[in-house]
Amino acid sequence: MKRLPIISRLLILAVVIVVSIGVLLHWTRVQAPDSSHAPLELAAPPTGGDFTLDSAAGPVRLSDLRGQVVLIYFGYTSCPDICPTNLVYIANALRALQPAELERTRVLFISVDPERDDPSRLASYVGYFHPNILGLTGTPAQVAEVAKHYGAAYRRVDDTGSAMVYLIDHSAFTYVVDPSGRLVQTLGHASPPETILAAIRTAFGAEP
């Protein structure tokens, strides 16, 4: 029987390895569901409100973004799964907007880990997802004050067995602010891009 060329055999081996890794990851999730990083519930009903925090380009004030739809999300750059999931969904929703809509839509990613997330680190992180996402931070007291207005919950959890040292458990809601600066909708964790897209367009439709 004729043997397969070495390139074909290597491709088959690569496919087998990738499939095996996928099966292993799936098995690990099934066998250890408690190891997942679960989001917290809201600490209080969100009311919204103006705030100023720091970006890599300087201070950003929410009221300076009037005329735009603003999505606000609280997370941190070392988040293992919850933040990347939501940011990918948000970025996909942004890519589905018409150019004129995209020009008037901004996302503010507010770090609940100001100890590690300086403005430069945040800019690098959010840049992987979409250019319309801005990373914001401040002092712990400033972040806590903003989080209080949006009902965002977070807490430090020590993880001394890893290089991370600690994780941040946090709520994972996306807040939709309309062009007048009013909080009009709160979307749950892992809301699909279609839901986010609809919320953005609804917020545009609420303009006076």
Rank of each mutant, 00 (worst) to 15 (best):
65 L>H: 07
65 L>G: 06
65 L>R: 09
66 R>N: 15
66 R>S: 15
68 Q>P: 06
70 V>Y: 06
72 I>E: 14
74 F>D: 14
74 F>Q: 10
74 F>C: 09
75 G>K: 12
76 Y>D: 02
76 Y>S: 02
76 Y>I: 07
77 T>N: 08
77 T>G: 10
78 S>W: 11
78 S>H: 12
81 D>I: 14
81 D>F: 12
83 C>F: 03
84 P>K: 04
85 T>H: 02
86 N>A: 08
87 L>K: 10
89 Y>S: 12
91 A>K: 03
92 N>A: 15
92 N>P: 07
94 L>E: 15
95 R>L: 05
95 R>G: 05
96 A>D: 07
98 Q>Y: 04
99 P>E: 04
100 A>R: 13
100 A>V: 14
100 A>E: 15
101 E>R: 12
101 E>S: 00
102 L>E: 10
102 L>V: 02
103 E>V: 12
103 E>N: 14
103 E>K: 09
104 R>S: 11
105 T>W: 07
105 T>E: 09
105 T>I: 05
105 T>L: 10
106 R>W: 12
107 V>I: 08
107 V>M: 00
111 S>F: 07
113 D>E: 12
114 P>Y: 00
115 E>W: 01
116 R>L: 06
116 R>P: 00
116 R>K: 08
116 R>C: 01
118 D>V: 13
118 D>R: 14
118 D>H: 14
120 S>L: 13
122 L>D: 05
122 L>M: 01
123 A>F: 11
123 A>Y: 14
124 S>H: 08
124 S>E: 10
124 S>D: 13
125 Y>T: 14
125 Y>N: 13
126 V>M: 04
127 G>K: 04
127 G>V: 03
128 Y>A: 14
129 F>R: 09
131 P>L: 11
131 P>E: 12
131 P>K: 08
133 I>L: 01
133 I>N: 01
134 L>N: 08
135 G>E: 04
137 T>S: 08
137 T>N: 05
137 T>R: 12
138 G>Y: 01
138 G>M: 05
138 G>T: 06
138 G>F: 02
138 G>V: 08
139 T>G: 01
139 T>Y: 05
139 T>R: 06
140 P>Y: 03
140 P>Q: 01
140 P>G: 01
141 A>G: 13
141 A>P: 03
142 Q>N: 11
143 V>G: 07
143 V>S: 05
145 E>S: 14
145 E>K: 14
145 E>A: 15
146 V>W: 08
146 V>A: 04
146 V>K: 13
147 A>P: 07
147 A>R: 02
148 K>F: 14
148 K>P: 09
148 K>L: 11
151 G>W: 14
151 G>N: 13
152 A>S: 08
154 Y>E: 03
154 Y>R: 03
156 R>L: 02
156 R>A: 02
156 R>D: 01
156 R>H: 08
156 R>T: 11
157 V>D: 06
157 V>T: 03
159 D>C: 00
160 T>G: 02
160 T>I: 05
161 G>V: 04
162 S>H: 05
163 A>Q: 14
163 A>F: 08
163 A>T: 09
164 M>F: 06
164 M>T: 15
164 M>C: 00
164 M>H: 13
166 Y>D: 00
168 I>L: 10
169 D>E: 15
170 H>W: 04
170 H>S: 01
170 H>L: 03
170 H>V: 00
171 S>H: 08
